[in-house]
Design a binder for these strands. Sequence first.
RNA 1: GCUGGGUUAGCGAAGUGGUCAAACGCAUCUGACUGUAAAUCAGACGGCUUUAUGCCUUCGGAGGUUCGAAUCCUUCACCCAGCA
Length: 400
Amino acid sequence: MHVKRQSIVDFQVTACYSAYINMISYSIVKKSKRSSARAGIIHTPHGDVETPALVGVATQATVKTLTSDEVVQTGSSLLIANTFHLHLKPGEDIVKRNGGLHDFMHWDKALMTDSGGYQVFSLGFGRDHNIGKIVKEDTPLTLSTHASSKNVKITSDGVYFNSPIDGKKLFIGPKESIAIQQKLGADIIFAFDECTPPIADRAYTQKSMDLTHTWAHVCVSSKKSDQSLFSIIQGGKFKDLRIQSAKTIASLPVDGFGIGGELGFDKKEMFTMLGWVTHELPENKPRHLLGNGHIDDLETIFSRGVDTLDCIIPTHYARHGVAFTAQGKLDMSKSQYLSNKDPLDILCSCMVCQTYSKSYLCHLIRAKELTALRLLSFHNLFYFNGVVASIRQKILDNKI
RNA sequence: GCUGGGUUAGCGAAGUGGUCAAACGCAUCUGACUGUAAAUCAGACGGCUUUAUGCCUUCGGAGGUUCGAAUCCUUCACCCAGCA
């Protein structure tokens, strides 16, 4: 993969079909009769991705703590890296000079890059109010159209950020995001959007959605590469806006869809909202749910017609000492596990469960050994991928 | 033996007459975490209860000065350094 040895003939054939080969395509293997679930395959220039699929989060061109080879062993076939972070460090030109993201990070399978739209929220209102994308219902905070963030200035052309690294001002709009993503060279790139804050009122949500739609058009027209473009649906918690957004984005010449922003205060609401959105989308293109995927929600999310989703939970929680198992979430920093000689999950066939005891992992966590973070990250990703694979099987077996 | 420095909550370490149940760090415990500002963050951490501008017991031991002592004095114990 690193060093490509091709005969002249091979090269010509590749060149001949490159415009075709480099786009993704999606095929449905099985459509559920019981729900909106689909089992399918996204064909990419870097291999097929069987869907539903969990997309591993590799924000800074790495799934934190794991090598790319290890990520392959966890069963992942698609990762998502981040435009904003890679623009800051090391810069897209460095990545390009290293042969693009795939070569740079030695990842031979499919890749997405997120557009930086999430950072519009997380480094803006998210940071201002110390909130995440999902917020409890009883928050007194509200954002209306006049609201402005300390750290991020949103204009019709794009967004002025303060770099979280050195405070330096930088500007990213739809054109800039696409230009960066072209240099990064992932198979699938995302349109620049504003991740609508969960505390936005209707007026703000609408304005933000309109802006995201405007930017989506700019992204479509400024893309010069043969990468596949996914465009993001917003609309917050408002049914008419979600539907309007889905219809608008669906009418664009894009290759797939992202479902973004906040999805209500509770799980039920989220599942309902996903239904509103996927109902409006054409069947022949993949739908990606951005940044959402508690383990217990996966089956219902996929049953609403979502094909892929990315979520930091398996790797993020791992670094905070939490392991996911068939017995639930285990906080491996708890001293009770020091005397437990069983594997994390007795039925798990991952390298960690085949090799190490809870006692050892608990010790490593408590001793703050980096290996602990690696082992839990590996297990959690493997475990999540296994759960998603079993959901796919259930769809194939008419059980979902 | 002499001289000097020291002994503070589980550990390390501030504090040198009142605002001290005693800063801060570590350890411990409890919570958070959903397109990664995240190997992070927040809270508790002498005891008791009616959870409070509440009560009780603490700063090597004992005694003293003072309205009031972790802080000053005496003495004892132990530790460290230098000198014999």
